[in-house]
Amino acid sequence: MKKIVIAIDGYSGTGKSSTAKQVAAKLGYTYIDSGAMYRAVTYFFLSNNVDYHNLEEVRKSLSDCQIKFEGSSILLNDKNIDHEIRTMGVNQNVSPVSAISEVRQKLVDQQREMGKRKGVVMDGRDIGTVVFPDAELKVFMTADMDVRAERRRKELVKKGIEENLEAIKENLANRDHIDSSRADSPLKMASDAKEIDTSNLTLNQQIDKIVEMAEGIIHEG
């Protein structure tokens, strides 16, 4: 049976990561959380007092920032940082860090390498447009802002983090603006992507919809 690459892009809080993870599990594919990779770099910069507005500092520090996955966990220099990358501090800085060309190039190279053998589900903001422009299935996920903010709040609560809903909305709106307007690989829907509005969909409905799309491609011809 042939294997394909599934690229899932969209805004924060639309359910990308949760959906992509389960789609990969149902298909027996490898799940790669590209957003976690950018969060890991952001956490590395914050933890090491790297001024990410200073490109010289960024270039020097990136060589000391080694990211890899172990199962569904992300490791930074061999340390598990699953919890650390979900804090509000990282939330507030990840979009400007993600807009840095040197950071994007380092991570895009890694992501492309991970996808060479196919059988991969990757989610992010430029997966279908930049990382895997030839992906067999591209999905772009959207949702109402109120729905997105409440999902993010619940996600934070599960991790033991209490945050004001209005602060979450403000953070999401700010990230949308930065992600969509950055010069390098802005967030946008690929011309051949399938758009899914998840506002009124359960997680299982989102998963089933994408698995059905994927199986149609896998078994065609």
Rank of each mutant, 00 (worst) to 15 (best):
K2E: 14
K3T: 15
K3S: 14
I6K: 03
A7F: 11
A7M: 08
I8A: 02
Y11W: 03
G13T: 05
T19A: 03
L27I: 11
L27W: 03
L27Y: 05
Y29H: 07
Y31Q: 06
I32G: 05
D33E: 07
M37C: 06
R39I: 13
A40S: 14
T42A: 09
F44W: 10
F44Q: 03
S47E: 07
V50M: 07
D51S: 12
Y52I: 10
Y52G: 01
H53Y: 06
L55C: 00
L55Y: 09
E56K: 13
E56D: 15
E57I: 07
V58R: 00
L62S: 05
D64T: 13
D64R: 12
I67A: 12
K68G: 12
F69N: 06
F69E: 10
G71K: 11
S72W: 01
S72Y: 09
L76Y: 01
L76A: 02
N77L: 04
N77Y: 08
K79Y: 11
N80L: 05
I81G: 01
H83W: 04
I85S: 03
R86Q: 11
T87N: 12
T87W: 08
M88Y: 11
V90D: 06
N91V: 14
V94L: 07
S98R: 01
E102V: 12
R104G: 06
Q105V: 13
L107N: 03
D109P: 04
Q111D: 04
Q111Y: 08
E113H: 12
K116P: 10
M122D: 04
G124Y: 07
G124H: 05
G124I: 11
R125Y: 06
T129K: 02
V131R: 00
F132E: 01
P133G: 04
D134E: 14
D134N: 15
A135P: 03
V139S: 02
F140D: 01
M141I: 05
M141Y: 00
T142Y: 03
D144M: 11
D144A: 13
M145G: 00
R148G: 09
E150C: 07
R151V: 01
R153F: 04
K154L: 15
E155Q: 14
L156T: 09
K158D: 12
K159Q: 12
I161Y: 06
E162L: 09
E163R: 04
L165Q: 03
A167R: 09
I168S: 00
K169W: 06
K169E: 01
R175P: 13
I178R: 00
D179H: 07
S181L: 09
A183K: 13
S185V: 13
L187I: 04
K188Y: 13
K194A: 11
D197H: 01
N200W: 08
L201N: 10
T202A: 08
L203F: 08
L203V: 10
Q205M: 14
Q206H: 00
G216I: 14
H219D: 14
E220P: 00
